[in-house]
């Protein structure tokens, strides 16, 4: 686990990903200051959407990166001679990754909330701060599950580019493609994840059909497991160099 923490700390991609997420939040806060909105809900909506999108993309990039790092750097032999128990290697990677993404998502939500608070106070706009916090922090579980999905796809494809592309398609594009097949669309990962986030944020519009929170969580967990297990088993069983 220490080695995975060191990789996160020393290697460039995690650092730049964190900078991109937090930088994106800061830039959004600045934009809201420069181009003010009329009501607090608009501030929450803009910042909530940006934070959600940034953390999900970061989670996908970090998940794919962590799973494929050794394949891409040729350091797999070094990792597997330091720890020949492959399940432990994956558990350490995934454990550290989930903690890191959760920390990043919480930091992004906190920064976003702080910025919105400062900007709305300066502009004298009334804001439901409870709603702001719920909206921003509701993204954290989604970021974690997206990480697991991207990690699983990384193990399966063994290509960071391939894993990111497939994960982005799966999480962000597929629901749009299936909009004309609502019965199918209700069962895809992104719908369960979106419904889970909406329920946690308490942001369910009247008349919109949304899974209940337990069903949404169950759907997300099942999808995460389904997408994680094949790559995990492939890593355990294959000849690796």
């Amino acid at each position: 686990m220490n080695a995975e923490l060191l990789k996160l700390r020393l290697l460039a991609l995690p650092r730049w990903t964190a900078i991109a997420v937090l930088g994106g939040v800061v830039v959004t806060g600045a934009m809201l200051d420069v181009f003010p909105r009329d009501d607090g809900a608009a501030f929450i909506g803009v910042m909530g959407t940006v934070t959600s999108l940034l953390t999900e993309i970061a989670a996908i990039v970090l998940g794919a990166w962590a799973a494929t790092l050794e394949f891409n750097s040729g350091a797999l032999q070094r990792t597997l001679t330091a720890q020949a128990d492959r399940s432990r290697v994956l558990l350490a990677k995934l454990g550290v990754l989930v903690l890191a993404v959760a920390a990043l998502a919480i930091a992004a939500a906190a920064a976003a909330g702080g910025l919105v608070d400062v900007v709305t106070r300066q502009q004298g706009i009334d804001l439901d701060r409870g709603e702001l916090a719920r909206t921003l922090f509701a993204n954290v579980p989604a970021a974690i599950t997206v990480t697991v999905v991207a990690f699983g796809l990384g193990l399966l494809t063994r290509s960071i580019g391939g894993a990111i592309t497939v994960a982005l398609t799966f999480v962000l594009v597929l629901p749009g493609l299936l909009v004309f097949l609502p019965a199918v669309n209700r069962l895809v990962y992104a719908t369960f994840e979106g419904d889970m986030t909406s329920r946690l944020a308490g942001d369910v519009a009247p008349g919109v059909e949304v899974h209940s929170l337990p069903v949404a969580v169950l759907g997300v967990v099942v999808w995460a497991v389904v997408l994680l297990v094949p790559g995990w088993l492939r890593f355990l069983r294959d000849d690796l160099k």
Partner: peptide
């Protein structure tokens, strides 16, 4: 080829190995 993280220094490469082996 030696499996190295090319953007890291030799010291950091060794630190990761030390941490991985425990």
């Amino acid at each position: 080829a030696p499996p190295l993280y090319k953007r890291l220094s030799p010291i950091d490469n060794l630190r990761i190995r030390v941490a991985a082996t425990g």
